[in-house]
Simulated assay, not measured.
Amino acid sequence: MNNVFSYIIVMALVTYLIRALPLTLIRKEIKSSFVKSFLHYVPYATLAAMTFPAILHATDYVLSSVIGFVVALVLALNKKSLLTVAGAACAVAFVVEIFLH
């Protein structure tokens, strides 16, 4: 049980340092357009890196997950609402999963 608390403390320190160090080290405005654009896309890349593996392992078969993801991608690129995209992706993955059993 002691090990769990030490893991939580280390995780909290790392999380705090990641958020606090840029605030303390960078005092002036960033003028480089490359650095600005890089920092602009970091949250999106991080979210994608955390979400995509979960999408592939959300169902029993990877094929149904991939088909649901493709449906979600097509709907999102066609500017459909988040509720429509999520609902359609879940429904398609569910139907494909039924046919694969």
Rank of each mutant, 00 (worst) to 15 (best):
I55P: 02
Y7A: 02
A76H: 11
A86K: 13
S6Y: 05
A58S: 03
L77D: 00
K31M: 12
V92W: 15
I8K: 00
V95Q: 04
V92L: 15
H57L: 12
L77S: 02
S64C: 09
L100R: 08
L100T: 06
N2Q: 02
R19K: 12
F94E: 13
K31Q: 12
G87N: 10
K80V: 04
V71F: 12
F99T: 06
T46K: 04
I26Q: 08
N78R: 04
M50W: 06
L23C: 07
N78E: 07
A93P: 04
L23D: 05
V10A: 11
N2F: 13
N78H: 14
K79Y: 14
A76G: 04
F5M: 10
Y44K: 01
V35K: 00
Y44W: 03
A54Y: 10
A88Q: 01
V35S: 02
I98T: 04
L39G: 07
A54P: 02
A58Q: 02
A89R: 12
V92T: 05
K79G: 06
A89C: 10
V95H: 01
I98H: 08
L100D: 06
V35C: 03
I18V: 04
L100F: 12
H101D: 02
A45P: 03
L83W: 15
A86G: 08
S81H: 07
A45K: 05
V42A: 01
I8L: 09
A91P: 01
V92G: 04
S6P: 06
L56V: 10
T46Q: 06
V4A: 11
A58D: 01
T51A: 08
H40I: 03
K28V: 08
L77E: 05
F5W: 12
S81W: 09
F38L: 13
H57M: 14
L13V: 13
V96I: 14
S64R: 07
V92S: 05
L47Y: 08
L13D: 00
L23H: 11
F69H: 13
M11Q: 02
V92N: 00
A20G: 00
K80H: 04
S6F: 14
N3Y: 15
F94D: 06
A48K: 05
R19T: 11
F94A: 08
A91D: 00
E29M: 12
A88S: 11
L25T: 05
H57S: 13
A86P: 14
A54Q: 10
A49W: 14
K31V: 09
G87F: 15
A76S: 07
E29F: 09
V95D: 03
L39F: 15
L17G: 05
H57N: 13
F34G: 02
T84A: 13
L25N: 01
L83R: 13
S33Y: 15
S37I: 08
